[in-house]
Every structure is written in C-alpha cells, then in structure tokens.
Design a protein around this nucleic acid. Sequence first.
DNA 1: TCCCTGTCGATGCAATTGCATCTATATGGA
DNA 2: TCCATATAGATGCAATTGCATCGACAGGGA
Lengths: 151, 151
Amino acid sequence: MTKTSPSSQAVTAWARLMRVSRQLVEKAEDALKQAGLPPLAWYDVLHELAEAGEAGLRPFELTGRVLLAQYGVSRLLARLEADGLVEKLPVSDDGRGQIVRITPAGRDMRRRIWGVYGASIAGLMGEKLSAEELETLAGLLGRLRHPPARE
Amino acid sequence: MTKTSPSSQAVTAWARLMRVSRQLVEKAEDALKQAGLPPLAWYDVLHELAEAGEAGLRPFELTGRVLLAQYGVSRLLARLEADGLVEKLPVSDDGRGQIVRITPAGRDMRRRIWGVYGASIAGLMGEKLSAEELETLAGLLGRLRHPPARE
DNA sequence: TCCCTGTCGATGCAATTGCATCTATATGGA
DNA sequence: TCCATATAGATGCAATTGCATCGACAGGGA
C-alpha cells in the first residue's frame, strides 16, 4: 500500500522541482526563440538521430527516447522532413514502418541549436552549482525516475 | 560574460532535470485525470487563493505566483468562476481590477484534488528519497531559481 | 483640465496539442 | 489458408495555448 499523505520535505522538494524546472525550460526556450531557432523538442529529436548515425531510427524508437507522444513524434518528423532536416526511408522487413535518418542540414541545425542551448545550460546550471553539486543533483533526480530504471 | 559551453556535469544534471520533471508531472496529471479531477494548474490557483483567505487576490498577483501567463490566469479564472469555485469582486480603489476569492465549493475542490495530488507526491517523491535527501534536493533546486531569489 | 503613458484584464485568431480513430501491415493460431 | 488480434504511423477534430492587441481605467506632468 502506498502512503497517501506526503511529508513536508516531499512537498517542498516537489514544489521546487515543479517551479524550477518550468522556469528553466522557459528560459531556454526563450533563448532559442530569440535566436530565431526552433524549440527544444526539435533538438531532442535531432540529437537522438545524430547519435543513431547512418542507421537511423524507427519513429517508435524515438517515441520512447524523447518525451513526446506517438502523434507528436509523427507530426514533428513531418515538419523536420519538410524542412529537409531528416529523411524517411522505407524499411524492407516491415512494410508498415520507416527509417528516419538525419541529413547534413539536420546536423547543421543541431549544431546551431546547441550553440544557444548549451550556453543556456551553462548559464542556468553550470554557473549556479559546482561540479560536485551537479553530480549530487543528478544522482538524486535519477532516483526519482519512472520507471526506477536501468542506469 | 557568460560561459558558452556547459560542463558534462551540467549537461547530465540538466538532462535528468528535464526528463524527470516531465515524467513526474505527467504521472501526477494522469492520476488526477483518472480520478476525474481537474489539472494541476487548477490546484495551484485554488491553493494560492485558499492561502490568501477572505482578502482574496488580484489576478495580477496570481500571475506572479503560479507559473502561468497573464492570459492563462485570465482564462483559468473565468472557468473557475463558471464552475462556482471562485468569485470575482469589484475593487473600490482601482476601477480596472477585481478581487478573486475562493468559495466554499472551491475549498472543497481543493481538498479533493489534494487527496489525489498529495498521494502522488508521496508516492513519487516521499517513497524514493529520505527526508534528508529531499532537503538536499530542495536546497540544490533552490539555488537554480530565476531570479536567484529571496529566501 | 487635458493628454500621454502605463497597467489591468479580456479576447480574436492562429498554432499547437490531445484524443480518438483510421489505414496498412505483421503475426500467430485454427 | 484464413481470420483474429496486435503494432506502426498518420490524421480529423476538438480543446488548449500563445501571441498580439484591445478597451478600460490610473497616474502624472504641462
């Protein structure tokens, strides 16, 4: 049976987590928008595809990695393809599916987004906490993951 | 001048923060939805208004406290009023404004949401980390706030 | 008093998101 | 083989959100 009433420490930590995470996302998104760059979700997808390399990824694999619903991935990929940042290839052994691969233009866009996004991260996190504190934070957050997770 | 390239620790902590916070919000929202209750934003507003008591709050004060844009507050208050959870009163010394006050039905709704929301917090945070760890987490998150903040 | 500028709150419209469902293909069992 | 069920991905429609702007009033200076 699960406890139904949270401790005061849990409530405080929860409130901070909610507030701070939303503030930081907002800051990072603002910086991108101001630079005339697409939103963070685009970066996430381009990043995953860049890591996947020439082999590419199936859309359903992406759905698992970025925190986006299936229809969100479908629509985002449509936009990325329309902008020439990714390409869709048929896959031989499954007629329903496709392979999505990042294009050179996509890699370039990823780099440009990172220029701004990375600077935001440095300013919002790197300047506020020491390397040790950041590791502590990451460790604690890791233990809150759902599902409890593979390291 | 601000650093433009984040440390690996900063990137890891950032990624965890983004992922975990979104997962937890999603879990909490799902629980509310499944219980047939309104979303978290409703709770935030009802909570602030409950704390403000009979004096109520001006909408622009709410805008500052909950992380919602001005038009978001305006529209949410319209819905809450339509549902009888809050009431809007004219304010004598400022003809543009209004005072928003929670109603008994609003207090009741807040309690009902808390029954589910509090249980989510207990399950998602209280069960995963000790009281000390929660305090550490809250402390670290607090130092990431924007603006750097009044304690 | 009369503007000019600023703030409060609301809203029209476009873009985005969520939900439900659809089509197409795969897979396994009778 | 044929059917029932499951999975991949797309999409119509409704609800929500963001952006820009509006109307109403406040506050100050000339």
